[in-house]
C-alpha cells in the first residue's frame, strides 16, 4: 500500500459511522401538509393548511441522529374560504408579500427506540425566529407498497403564540395560541 492509499484509508476510517448510515429523504409535497388550528372568538376552531411545502429529512436511526428542514409557501394557506385566505395573506396575518416563506430548521432530534419522538428546532414566521419543539405523535419508515420507494413519514405537532412573531392583529378575537400540526411523508433520495 503506497502512502497516498494509506492516507485515504485513514481518512475514510475517521468518517463517523452515522454519516455513512444517515439516509437522506426529500419531502413529498403531495403528502406533506402543515396544518394550523386557531380559536375563532371562542365559538369554534378554524382549521387551515398550506398547500405547498418542501424540505429535506436526514435520519440515522442506528445512531439516533437526524435533521429536518421544512419550507412552507405562506401564500398557499387554504382555509376553504377564499376571502378569509386573502385576509390571512395580507399584512394583518402572514404578510406574504414581505415574508413569502415560513421555515423550520431542526437543531436536534430525540428518539424513542428507533422512531423520532420529538424534533427541536427553530421556526421563522414573519422574519422572527423562535425555538420550537415538535412532538412526534407517530412515525413509520418502510417501502411504499404502491411505488416500492423507501418512505418515512411522521405526524408532529406544536403550539405557538402568533404574537411572539409580531402577528398581533385580531387578538383576542382570533386566538393568539395556534396549534401547528404537520404530517410529513418523505421519499428516500436515490
Amino acid at each position: 500500500m503506497d502512502m497516498k492509499k494509506a492516507v485515504l484509508a485513514f481518512a475514510m476510517s475517521m468518517i463517523p459511522v452515522s454519516a455513512v448510515l444517515a439516509e437522506s429523504y426529500t419531502l413529498d409535497p403531495r403528502h406533506t401538509f402543515p396544518r394550523l388550528a386557531i380559536d375563532h372568538m371562542g365559538f369554534s376552531t378554524v382549521y387551515g393548511h398550506f398547500n405547498n411545502t418542501s424540505g429535506k429529512l436526514e435520519m440515522d436511526r442506528a445512531a439516533q441522529t437526524g435533521s429536518v428542514e421544512v419550507t412552507i409557501d405562506a401564500s398557499s394557506i387554504d382555509t376553504a374560504y377564499d376571502k378569509r385566505d386573502e385576509h390571512l395573506r395580507s399584512p394583518d396575518f402572514l404578510n406574504v408579500a414581505e415574508y413569502p416563506e415560513i421555515t423550520f430548521k431542526s437543531t436536534g432530534v430525540t428518539y424513542n427506540s428507533d422512531v423520532l419522538s420529538s424534533v427541536d428546532g427553530e421556526i421563522t414566521i414573519l422574519g422572527v425566529t423562535k425555538p420550537i419543539t415538535l412532538t412526534v405523535d407517530r412515525m413509520k419508515c418502510g417501502a411504499n407498497p404502491l411505488d416500492k420507494k423507501d418512505t418515512c413519514g411522521f405526524d408532529a405537532s406544536a403550539t405557538l403564540k402568533r404574537s411572539d412573531f409580531g402577528m398581533n392583529y385580531g387578538i383576542p378575537g382570533v386566538g393568539d395560541e395556534m396549534k401547528l400540526m404537520i404530517g410529513v411523508e418523505a421519499i428516500k433520495d436515490e
Partner: peptide
C-alpha cells in the same frame, strides 16, 4: 398598539 409596539423586524407597516 395595533403593531404591538414592535419595530423588529421592520415590516412595511
Amino acid at each position: 398598539p395595533l403593531n404591538g409596539f414592535q419595530f423588529v423586524p421592520l415590516t412595511g407597516t
